[in-house]
Amino acid sequence: MQIQMFAAFFIACDDGIGRVGRSTLPQQTLMELFIFGLNEPEKICGNRDDPDDVCEWKGVKCNADGKLEDFKWVSKKQDGTGTLGFEFLPWSIRNVVMWNNALSGTIQLADLPGKMEVVDISYNNLIGCLGLDSLPATVRTLNLSRSKFTGEISLEHLPKCLEYLSLSNNQLSGTICLTSLPPALGSLYLARNNFEGSLYFRRLPKSIRKMVLSENRFSGTIDFGNLPQSMRVLDIRKNAISGTIRAPNGID
C-alpha cells in the first residue's frame, strides 16, 4: 500500500521525480520503486507485498553504515524483462550491473546518482538516444553495448575519470570526435554501429590501450604518426578507409 501511494505521488509530481524522490524518500522505498519495474521483483526482495530489508536483497550490497552501494541483476536472459527508472536509485549507489537480460524502453543517463562509478547494462533491448554529456562526473565504467540505441552521440564532455566505454553493437550514427576524450580512458569500443566521417588520431589520451571502431562507415585516410605509446589494439576493419596504413611497432 505504501508503494502504491508513493507511485501515485510521483505521477502527480512528474517534473521532479528524481530530485524529490532522492531527497525525501528512504533508500528502501526508492529501491522498491526501482525493482518493481522489473520482472518478478519478489525474487530480489523476498516478498512483493512485504519486502525484506533492502540490504538483505539478492544482488544488493550495503556498506558498514547500511547505505546501498551495489546492485547486480544479471543473465536472466528472456526472463529478465522490465524497464529502468534511474531516478529511483538512491544517492549512495555506486555500481549497477544488469547485463544479459531483456530490459526494454529508454534510459535517462541524467538521472543516474552523483556517486555512480560503474554502469553495465549491456546485452539488453534498450532503445532511444544517449545523452553522454549528462553522465555523473564519477563514472569510471560505462557499458551500453549490444542493445538498440539510436541517434548521434557526443564524446567531447565525458567524465574525466572515465576509463572504459563500450557502445558496440547498437544502431548509433553520425560523426565522432576523438580529440577531447577523457585523460583516463583506456578502452573505447564503438564497433558495429553506423558511425561515419573521418578519424583523427593525433590527440588521443596517453592512457588509451584499446580502440575498436570496426564495422562502421568511417572513411578517408588516417594518420598514424602520433599514436600514444600505450596503444596496443586498434581495430578499424570493415570501414571505408583508404590510403596506405603503416602501424607503429606494438600495434595490433
Rank of each mutant, 00 (worst) to 15 (best):
D70C: 04
R140P: 00
R22L: 02
D65N: 11
W91Q: 10
S198K: 15
K58G: 03
F71L: 06
S166A: 14
A184H: 13
F149I: 07
K58W: 05
T81G: 15
G250Q: 04
A137G: 01
I153Y: 05
L142M: 12
I11A: 14
T244H: 10
D120K: 01
G131N: 14
K67P: 00
N194G: 12
L162F: 07
V54F: 14
P159E: 03
G46I: 03
R192A: 08
N47A: 09
R209F: 07
D79P: 00
N170A: 10
S214I: 00
T179R: 05
I251C: 08
I176W: 08
R140H: 10
D252S: 05
C129D: 12
L185E: 03
G197Q: 10
K210W: 05
C55H: 14
V54H: 11
R140A: 11
R140T: 15
S154M: 02
M98Y: 07
T29F: 01
E117L: 11
L213E: 06
R203D: 12
L103V: 00
S92D: 05
A137H: 13
E42N: 09
L190M: 15
D252E: 05
S198E: 15
P205S: 08
M31C: 04
A137L: 11
V96A: 10
F224A: 03
E117G: 00
N169R: 04
G105S: 06
N169L: 11
T138L: 07
R140E: 12
V74Y: 09
S104P: 00
L33Q: 06
D79N: 11
A191W: 12
R202G: 00
P248K: 02
G220P: 00
R94K: 15
L227V: 07
L199S: 06
M231R: 00
L155Y: 05
I107M: 04
G21L: 01
P228R: 02
C129Q: 14
Y123P: 00
L84N: 04
E196C: 14
D50Q: 07
L162D: 02
C62L: 08
A12F: 08
P182F: 04
L130Q: 08
K58C: 03
T244Y: 06
E163T: 11
N101E: 05
F6A: 06
N143I: 11
G21E: 01
E156N: 09
D223K: 01
K43T: 12
P136F: 11
D235G: 05
K61V: 11
S23T: 08
I222C: 03
A12I: 02
D111A: 13
I222A: 04
A12V: 03
A110G: 10
E32F: 01
S134T: 15
C13R: 12
D70F: 13
T138E: 14
L142C: 10
G16H: 15
I17V: 15
W91T: 12
C62K: 02
C55K: 06
K148M: 14
E87G: 10
S207G: 06
L162C: 05
T141K: 07
S187F: 09
E69L: 13
N63I: 03
Q171D: 13
K148G: 13
F9S: 06
T221C: 09
Y123C: 08
V97W: 07
R146L: 01
L30S: 01
L130T: 09
S145R: 01
N125K: 07
W57R: 02
L167Y: 13
L178Y: 08
T138R: 04
T83M: 08
D223T: 03
L172R: 03
G85W: 07
L188N: 04
C62T: 08
